[in-house]
Amino acid sequence: MQPQYDLIVVGGGVLGTFHAYHALEIGLKVALIEKDSTPQGATVCNFGQVVPSGMNSKWQLFGREGLRIYKEIQQQFDISVRQEGSVYFASNPEEEQLLEELHQINRDNDYPSILMTKSKCLDSYPGLQKDYVASGLFFPEEILLEPRIMINRLHKYLKASGLVLFANCTVIDCIALSNGIEVQCSNTKSLSAAKVIICNGTDFKTLYPELFNESNLVVSKLQMMQTRPQPNYKLPSSVLTGRSIRTYGAFQECPSYTGFNSRGDFDSTDNKWGVQIIFKQAMDGSVILGESQQSVDVSKINTLGTDLNMDVDDFILQEAKNIIDLPTYEIQRRWYGLYSHCKTDDVYQATIDDNIHVVTGIGRKGLTGSAGFAKANIYHIFNLRHV
């Protein structure tokens, strides 16, 4: 019996969905299996920024390809993409130096960026505190989107292109057969495919738990919050600040970074909890703020708990107020998201019985890097590297 599909993708988040997208693009028959009615993981629990500017040289290429793909889809089907750009604000001379060096790196890489003086920053961003900002670096090509809207509309778009989507369907086993893979689901459904790609996010207990417990995967918990809609206020782009400059991979490639005091006081709240101050205005006018990061080995995921640390939220709010004076800082919603990443690798990958490919642990690169990375990975898995 021939397999029903050329490829089954397990996991309907952004990483799994873009693997399905690129498989469809090369003419394969594809099924996507999502355990919930819609994705609930890191894909929807994030800011909704696509920012190749923050990535190292390798991943910036994936991110830039992702920008092209998002914009191409948006021209055909509204998935909530807005090209408003991203800006990094430096708060001191060291951070200014890194912005200038990153600007030069991007000029060499033909990726548009614009240096902004303090005066230009203050004129362009209402409420920006003059005591904080020293200068800025703006990336006009970068986009914002609404994550939950995007992923569900992307599924709808792909279904119209031939994708078969199974929601509320938990895969409990993948069995290698002589002519493909049998995929067994908890609702007694059984499907078959020539190849299977598993993009399981942080679900490490259902399939291959021993494999993941012995891996170098880490799970991080991020806290974020959302203000009430801002009256008569428009944030021109997403805003990243000094703590992003100190930690993002792109800046670590700048010549001055090795002498830059990026860690500061290890026991301080911002370092202890991995705090960054990021602003992104949602479509309803509210502003999303964050974030903090608490990490544990994958075998200790249960120790992260489900509570929110209000001390960290209070710290983020106070720091945010020192950067931008928004009309209101009244919070309407608080949440956390979990994402997995590797201690030593960019992405966690494992191959089981030749045709079962595990791909997870893309970390905070997911929304920006998945579209470009998945394209390269589909070409590799299906031996299309000459394309």
Rank of each mutant, 00 (worst) to 15 (best):
Y5V: 07
I8F: 03
V9R: 02
Y21D: 08
Y21R: 01
I26T: 12
K29T: 07
V30W: 06
E34I: 10
E34V: 12
D36I: 01
C45Y: 00
G48Q: 10
V50T: 10
V51S: 01
N56Y: 03
W59D: 06
L61I: 14
R64Q: 06
G66T: 05
L67G: 13
R68T: 12
Q76I: 06
F77H: 14
F77K: 10
V81I: 13
E84G: 02
E84H: 06
G85L: 13
E95H: 09
E95C: 07
E101F: 04
N109M: 11
S119E: 14
S119Y: 13
P126M: 10
G127T: 04
L128N: 06
Q129K: 12
A134R: 15
G136L: 15
G136M: 10
E141R: 15
L145E: 04
N152M: 12
H155T: 03
Y157Q: 04
L158G: 13
K159I: 14
K159H: 09
L163C: 05
I172P: 00
D173F: 08
D173Q: 05
L177N: 15
L177Y: 10
S190C: 05
A194F: 03
D203P: 05
F204K: 09
L207E: 04
T227F: 09
P229G: 08
Q230C: 04
S237Y: 01
S237V: 01
R243K: 14
I245G: 00
E253S: 03
N261T: 06
R263I: 14
G264Q: 08
G274H: 08
I277K: 00
I278L: 15
K280M: 08
Q281H: 04
A282E: 14
G285T: 04
G285M: 02
V287T: 09
S292Q: 07
Q293A: 13
K300A: 09
I301P: 02
T306M: 12
T306K: 13
L308I: 15
M310A: 12
D313V: 12
I316T: 10
Q318E: 15
E319P: 02
Y329N: 10
R333A: 14
W335G: 10
Y339H: 11
Y339V: 13
S340Y: 07
Q349V: 01
N355P: 00
N355R: 02
I356M: 08
V358E: 03
I362P: 00
I362D: 10
G363W: 05
G363N: 03
G363H: 11
G366A: 12
A374G: 02
A374F: 02
Y379A: 13
Y379F: 11
I381M: 03
L384R: 10
